[in-house]
Design a protein around this nucleic acid. Sequence first.
DNA 1: TATGGCCTTGGAGTGCGCTCCAAGCAAGCG
DNA 2: CGCTTGCTTGGAGCGCACTCCAAGGCCATA
Lengths: 162, 162
Amino acid sequence: MLQTTPVTIEQTPNPPDVCSAPPPRHPRPDGQDSYTISEVVAFTGLTAHTLRWYERIGLMSHIDRSHTGQRRYSNRDLDWLDLVGKLRLTGMPVADMVRYAELVREGENTFRERYELLEATRRDVRARIAELQDTLAVLDRKINFYADATGVRYHEAEGTAR
Amino acid sequence: MLQTTPVTIEQTPNPPDVCSAPPPRHPRPDGQDSYTISEVVAFTGLTAHTLRWYERIGLMSHIDRSHTGQRRYSNRDLDWLDLVGKLRLTGMPVADMVRYAELVREGENTFRERYELLEATRRDVRARIAELQDTLAVLDRKINFYADATGVRYHEAEGTAR
DNA sequence: TATGGCCTTGGAGTGCGCTCCAAGCAAGCG
DNA sequence: CGCTTGCTTGGAGCGCACTCCAAGGCCATA
């Protein structure tokens, strides 16, 4: 129950059918979904500090509490954290994610704005991927050079760093 | 001479032939390559502060100086900055780039280590691209949902943020 | 000669995203 | 009962990558 390895919530042991709407699998079924903070730490790889901080800054709404005041996360919270994790690795600033969270809390009349925010993000992500592929090409060339050179003692000019 | 728009040094007005070793084009030919810091600012989009800081921390070797002590950057320096820019957007920490710069300064006997560093970086970049493509899939699904919903007033569960 | 523009330096400051601390409470166990 | 474990809080601290500051030098044009 208390696994220590950070695990992506949305694992991919789903069949090799390349389909478009993979529903996230949860550790426990809806109805019994009540996770302590340390369980969420184990599932997400985030620290408890970070989880509490996310809540403080409004990136997560107030989490349900046990009768003793301890946090009890739900499957929906896990889904949200999964999205946050994805947005985080696009480089989206936390402030923007908070903005999105506010829009979600405000209800359906913010659909248009959410749409625009996500669309802008998608553009950024695409640009980012393109940049990275560019970088990959440069790395490939340099790596090939060094692969040839180590063992052949050869020289090619490269950017200065003397 | 003093263009204000940040310009990628390695522009792509090269013919649409998809080839593997694109030599960077420089603003001035070798021999007349002597750029002031503000020119480099214009070319790279970095600030003068950052350029001087890069030099202080050893990410660039000491740059040539004019008789009055002002920095004069060369084409080789521009090439190096181009590589640094690429590595930077892979998320490589500055300290690692400094390490690589040191290896380059140390000479050919560090080829193997440079190779390994770049290879590790390439692995990271590939993983990163995969993550981003994953994220892109999530964004696509959400964006489609909002595209449908705005105008159709429809509902689908999404991660909680109440 | 004076004014403005561009450059120099060491060191201090900033913003972001965590990260940690101290003090304390509640539950479970021997 | 005492001890451990896990959780709670507000607020302070940290590491990274810049970013800026104050004080001053050099030189071209008016």
